[in-house]
């Protein structure tokens, strides 16, 4: 993927100031108004001089190339989001680039920001990564965790249902059931697919399925009995079980087959800005992170990974197909 193909595809993610300088000329602007605007802009630019916003990124057309990264982790988002400096610094040191981390918690907002080119490198879930690639043609997967090659979800039930662990998903159809977040791959998309495969209508459950919003909320809602069953990311389930923080009323019912999930995705505008080999350098950085190095280990731990491995676009073909069939990808 290079800049020319991005242009041909008419991607709005391309920086307009670089590729369409002629179109930004206003046809007729009254001189006085223009002077006023320029004056105001100058005054305010001076006021904001030497300061970058605590919430936004600098102008994308800024002189220095700063790579803006973001992540929407599934598990313990507050830990990563509050320790994001670790990731940004490690990446910055390894690639000799300015790296800033942008806080986003909403899946849709992250995809949109990727499309607009405000985020160069984002840690997406399987489904959101597909959505982002479709909206920003030319985006390329960089790396995934070792566990993401074969990720699983677990179906959990409230012990009061009396259901014993089984591979048969059909008994779940008659229970009040909740997914996690609506565009979560492990909390919604893949479980819905496997339910469908087992002959259970994924939108069917009594009263309609709930969307708890997060994996931890799913555990709590099944524990309370409000929903009798739910589904969540196996990583979260294992981690919470190990911590001993899971209410004994919640028991594992079934485990899904493996699928691809989280990965780092690089925006199409990045190679022109950071050099054509930036994708390779990033993949090299991530796959080179070693648990033996204390600095690397800190980064790996934030992502709950043993190591990173390369990711290919074809890894997510199945997810795209399922997303289409469930109306989540259009």
């Amino acid at each position: 993927m290079d800049r020319r193909s991005a242009l041909r595809s008419g991607s709005p993610g391309v920086q307009p100031s670089r590729v369409q300088p002629s179109r930004v000329q206003p046809s007729r602007v009254q001189p006085s108004r223009r002077a006023f605007l320029a004056g105001t802009a100058l005054a305010l630019a001076t006021a904001a001089c030497g300061r970058s916003s605590p919430v936004g990124a600098a102008s994308p057309a800024g002189a220095t190339a700063t790579m803006r990264i973001g992540a929407i982790p599934d598990q313990d988002p507050e830990v990563l989001q509050r320790l994001h400096g670790t990731v940004a610094e490690s990446l910055s040191a390894a690639l000799d680039l300015d790296v800033t981390y942008s806080p986003v918690t909403d899946y849709a907002a992250a995809v949109s920001l990727f499309r607009t080119g405000d985020l160069d490198l984002v840690w997406f879930g399987g489904l959101t990564g597909v959505q982002a690639r479709l909206q920003a043609p030319g985006a390329q997967p960089i790396a995934q965790r070792d566990i993401d090659e074969s990720f699983h979800s677990v179906f959990v039930v409230n012990a009061a249902t009396g259901l014993a662990a089984s591979d048969d998903l059909r008994p779940l159809a008659g229970l009040r059931f909740t997914y996690g977040s609506e565009t979560s791959t492990s909390g919604r998309l893949m479980p819905a697919y496997f339910l469908q495969q087992a002959g259970v209508d994924p939108q069917g459950f009594p009263g309609g399925p709930g969307f708890s919003g997060s994996h931890d909320a799913t555990i709590a809602l099944v524990a309370s009995g409000t929903y009798q069953a739910g589904v969540l990311n196996e990583q979260v389930w294992t981690s919470r079980s190990a911590e001993g923080s899971v209410d004994p009323a919640v028991v594992q019912y079934a485990r899904t087959p493996g699928y691809h999930d989280y990965h780092w995705l690089l925006g199409p505008q990045a190679p022109p800005r950071f050099g054509g080999d930036v994708a390779e350098r990033l993949t090299g950085y991530f796959t080179g992170l070693s648990a033996d190095d204390p600095g690397d280990a800190a980064v790996l731990e934030l992502f709950g990974a043993g190591s990173f491995v390369p990711a290919r676009a074809s890894d997510y073909d199945q997810i795209e197909e399922i997303g289409r069939s469930l109306g989540l990808v259009s």
């Binding site: 006021a47 300061r51 936004g56």
Partner: peptide, 26 residues
């Protein structure tokens, strides 16, 4: 108001930038 403006580093230019118009068009 002045402090907030400085703290958030607002720039009126981004409101009328070509990029904003293009994205709005999208």
């Amino acid at each position: 108001v002045v402090w907030s403006w400085w703290f958030l580093a607002l720039s009126p230019a981004s409101l009328v930038s070509a990029r904003a118009r293009e994205q709005a068009g999208y």
